[in-house]
Design a protein around this nucleic acid. Structure first.
Length: 490
RNA sequence: GGCGGUAUCGUCUAGGGGACUAGGACACAGCCCUCUCAAGGCUGGAACACGGGUUCGAAUCCCGUUACCGCUACCA
């Protein structure tokens, strides 16, 4: 028999947003499916009606789409399969692997409390399993509510986990768990197994917080006469303090990073390296490379700590990797949101904008960084950064002299190109007695042009600004310096 | 408490008995480059949790201890 096509699924419950941990689980499932020619399915586990919301479901879709993790086939909603879940519970009852339990929640809670008081661990004592057939029939006839409990068989349950190798549980430590509630709705473990069987899932890859559910699920597969899938339990993601990642740690939703100006390709790359390694020193990868290199042998057993600093570095790497021309689409919305320019304006001078991105992205780690730096190239009036003024315009009269001279030199340039600018400005520095310290001209000029102490190379700035705007900025600076007051120019 | 899982630089990790003076990356520090800031290059500090075995030889295998995490619901 040839190897079947792998079928994997990501099965989040829609009770919030798409968490980075969930996103990484989805990513590994997706990578495996893509790598081995399988299917990646999406199942929304919405059986907890009280906590599930449509909004969360939408957030999951949007998060996965943004990351570029496309799923195959239609989305499966667990809540739509109540009938099958109920039927499967009935089958367990019929084939004798489960029994009716008439104990009420209140009774159970009381017994649990008593056991706790005696410092003992509570485990259901199977009393309802000892009821006679007649007694059970009588109670059912009386309309007494009951749950359906799975009877844990003797022995041990083990499996070969793709990341942990063999894991074994003595069955005696597992209690007869409920599979169907009094109201006829299924409990998680039954719903999952029933759905995974129905979806013909061959590899269950999920968080390792499910390890202790696995023996129960394996027993259900067997009781239902279904073939077992392979299991792979991925480590968790923790916050910088080593605790499970939560809202306390700041951004935990995939959408948070989207809004922070992180590129999806960087997010995916970073997440992939949290709990997986290609086995060599490769770090920055495209999605195609990740698929190429993915292998469960590289999966980590240990929980990883989410380090936002490395994510930012990774984002910088991806910004360099992606041609500016392709970056435009991702940056334009942020430019609009910042009120710097409209999409139409940017489209009208796309070439210029791409050239600007080339210069800005190298000194930015996020899209937001780019937007922050872009201000001077769009706004009419610029603000002078106080620190920049304090440092580079300390001597107002002297600075004005330098800027005036620089203005003259630039205004007389035959052509507005970097080589000419450099030659002229360096010659000016020489004439003014600065020797080869041309920075004494460049620095004050940079502040006049951008208002900032840091920017791309001065000739690039001059070029991007254009002759008339550059000269106007110098004039404004001269006005500011000579007036001795004021804070802004145009 | 019970059961399960995990344990290499601050962080992500390579390593699967000798190639380890434990490699790479982020972060940090210094230097180089340089008109500033980045980027880039170079250099540096920084780790095998502890204790027993097994072995000629353990980061690597086994056992125990410790620490951390997870599960322990008519939640998922």
């Amino acid at each position: 028999m040839s190897a079947p096509i792998p079928r994997l699924r990501f099965a989040p419950s829609p009770t919030g947003y798409l968490h980075v941990g969930g996103a990484r689980t989805a990513l590994f499932n997706w990578l495996y499916a893509r790598k081995f020619g399988g299917q990646f399915l999406l199942r929304i586990e919405d059986t907890d009606r009280a906590r599930s919301t449509e909004e969360s479901t939408r957030a999951i879709f949007e998060g996965l789409e943004w990351l570029g993790l496309a799923w195959d086939e239609d989305v499966v909603y667990q809540g739509a399969s109540f009938e099958r879940h109920r039927a499967d519970a009935q089958r367990l009852l019929d084939n004798g692997t489960a029994y009716r339990c008439f104990c009420t929640q209140a009774e159970l809670a009381e017994r649990r409390a008593e056991a706790e008081a005696r410092n003992e661990s509570f485990k259901y004592d199977r009393r309802c399993d000892r009821l006679s057939t007649d007694e059970v029939a009588r109670r059912v006839a009386d309309g007494m509510p009951f749950t359906i409990r799975f009877r844990i068989p003797e022995g041990t349950t083990s499996w070969i986990d793709l990341v942990h190798d063999e894991i074994e549980f003595p069955n005696k430590d597992i209690e007869d768990f409920i599979v169907l509630r009094t109201d006829g709705t299924p409990i998680y473990n039954l719903a999952v197994v029933s759905d995974d069987i129905a979806m013909r899932i061959t590899l269950v890859m999920r968080g390792d917080d499910h390890i202790s559910n696995t023996p129960k699920q394996i027993m259900l597969y067997r009781a239902l006469g279904a073939e077992l899938p392979t299991f792979a339990h991925l480590p968790m993601i923790h916050g910088l303090d080593g605790k499970k990642l939560s809202k306390r740690h700041g951004a935990t939703a995939v959408s948070d990073y989207q809004h922070l100006g992180i590129l999806p390709s960087a997010m995916v790359n970073f997440l992939a390296l949290l709990g997986w390694s290609p086995g060599n020193d490769i770090e920055v990868m495209t999605q195609a490379q990740m698929i190429e290199l993915f292998d469960t042998a590289g999966l980590q057993k240990k929980a990883a700590i989410f380090d936002p600093k490395k994510l930012e570095w990774m984002n910088g790497q991806h910004m360099s990797l992606i041609p500016s021309d392709e970056l435009v689409a991702r940056i334009v919305p942020a430019m609009e949101a910042a009120g710097l320019a409209t999409a139409a304006e940017l489209e009208a001078r796309r070439e210029w904008f791409v050239a600007l991105l080339d210069l800005l992205k190298v000194r930015a780690r996020t899209i937001d960084d780019v937007v922050r730096q872009a201000g001077p190239y769009f706004r009419g009036p610029i603000d002078y950064d106080p620190d920049a003024v304090a440092k580079q315009w300390k001597d107002r009269a002297g600075t004005a002299e330098i800027l005036a001279a620089a203005r003259d030199v630039l205004a007389q340039l035959a052509s507005w190109e970097p080589a000419a600018m450099e030659q002229a400005l360096r010659a000016l520095a020489e004439r003014m007695g600065f020797g080869d310290k041309a920075g004494r001209v460049f620095q004050p000029l940079r502040v006049a042009l951008t208002g900032l102490a840091a920017s791309p190379g001065i000739f690039d700035v001059l070029l991007l600004l254009g002759r008339s705007r550059a000269l106007a900025r110098i004039d404004d600076a001269l006005g500011y310096l000579r007036a001795g007051t004021g804070s802004a120019a145009s």
